[in-house]
Design a protein around this nucleic acid. Sequence first.
DNA 1: ATAATTGTTGAATAATCATTCAACAATTAT
DNA 2: ATAATTGTTGAATGATTATTCAACAATTAT
Lengths: 191, 191
Amino acid sequence: MARNKEFDVTERLGKAKDLFWEKGYNATSMQDLVTAMELNPGSIYGTFGGKHQLFIESLKMYSKEKLVEYEDAAAKYDSPLGSVKAIIRKAITRSFTENKACMSVKCSFEMASADEETHAFLKQQTAELMSFLENLLRLGQASGEINPDKDAKAMAAFIVSSFAGFWQMQVLFNDKDMSFAISNLLIDSIT
Amino acid sequence: MARNKEFDVTERLGKAKDLFWEKGYNATSMQDLVTAMELNPGSIYGTFGGKHQLFIESLKMYSKEKLVEYEDAAAKYDSPLGSVKAIIRKAITRSFTENKACMSVKCSFEMASADEETHAFLKQQTAELMSFLENLLRLGQASGEINPDKDAKAMAAFIVSSFAGFWQMQVLFNDKDMSFAISNLLIDSIT
DNA sequence: ATAATTGTTGAATAATCATTCAACAATTAT
DNA sequence: ATAATTGTTGAATGATTATTCAACAATTAT
C-alpha cells in the first residue's frame, strides 16, 4: 500500500555501472551519477543505499554479464580446445569493441586492495572463470587436444591472468596486430 | 641570491610517489600529500606546481627506478635466456615483496585512459621495457636458447603484458604457488 | 474519504577538495 | 645596511564532495 517507483531499477543500475566502469569509483561523483542515472539523490539513496553500495551492485551486474559472455562464447564450440580459444578470442575482441578496459580488471587495481567487499567479490568471480576454464582444459587434455603435461589449474590461471595484459596493451598501444599476436602466443602455449 | 630550500626535493618526491603508488591518483588528497611529504601546501605548489604535475613526476620517478631494477636483474646473467628469466622472476618476486601492485600497471587502468600525459608516458616507458626484452630474445634465438619460430617482438609484448596479470593475481589471490606456476608457464612458452 | 505508506524533489548540510596568498624568514648582491 | 629575491607558513578561498531531509505526490487498505 504505497506509491510505486517511476523508474526501472535494473535499467538505472545499468547507467551507474557504465559510469563506474568508464571513470572508476573515485573519479565518479554522486553528481555524475545523478546526471547519468536521471534520478535525484533521494531516489538513489532510497533505492541503492549510497555510492559504495551502488558501486558494488554495479560491479556485480557487470561481472555477471561478462561471465555469461564468456560462457556463451564457449558454448558455440563442441571441442574443449575450441571453447578455450573462443574465450581467449572473446577477451581480445572485447578489448577492441568496448571502449573501456574490463571493469573487473580496473577494479582489481583501483579498489580491491583498499576495499574488502570489492576484493572478496572479485576474487570469487575470477575464481569462477578459472574453474570454468580448468574444466574445459581437463576435457581437452582427455581428448588429446590440449597439452597433457601441463597442469590444467595452472593453465587456467595463466589464461585468466593474461587477460589483464590484453586490456593494458589495448589501453596503452591500441594495436590490433600486437594484441592478436599476444593472444596467439597464449593459445600456442596450451596446445 | 635568495633563500635555499629546507628540504631535499627528490626525497620528498619519493614520499609523494609512495602515496600515489599506494592509493592511486584520485584517492590521494592534497592533505594526504601535505602530511606524507611533511611540507606545507605552499612549498608543494612552489616546488612541484600542483597535484597533477606532482603525480606525473612521481610516476616518472617510479618508472625509472623500476626499469633499472629489471635491467639490473638481467645484467646478472650472461645468457640471454637467463636474463629474460631473471626479468620474469623479478616481476613475480616484486609482486610478493612490495605490498602494492606495480604503479605503472595501476596507472594504466586508473589514469591512462583519462589523462593523455600519463598515457603518453606509460606507452613510451612500456615500449622501452619491451624493446629491452625483444633484444634479449633475439640474442637468445641466435644462440639457440629461445624458440626461433616465434616473433621476438610478439614474445616481448607477451611477456610484458603478462606482468599485469601477475599483479592482478597477487592482489586477488596472494597465492605464491599459483603465481609461480603462471610465471613458469610463461617461461615455458618462449623456450 | 481518510490514514498509512512509499516515492519524488531539490535545496540544505557539513565535510573535504585543490589551490592561493599575505605575512614573515632567510639568503645574497650591492 | 639595504634592496631584491626566494622559501616557509598556515589560514582563507571557493568549489565540490557525499549525504540528509522536509515538503509534497501517489498509491492502497480500510
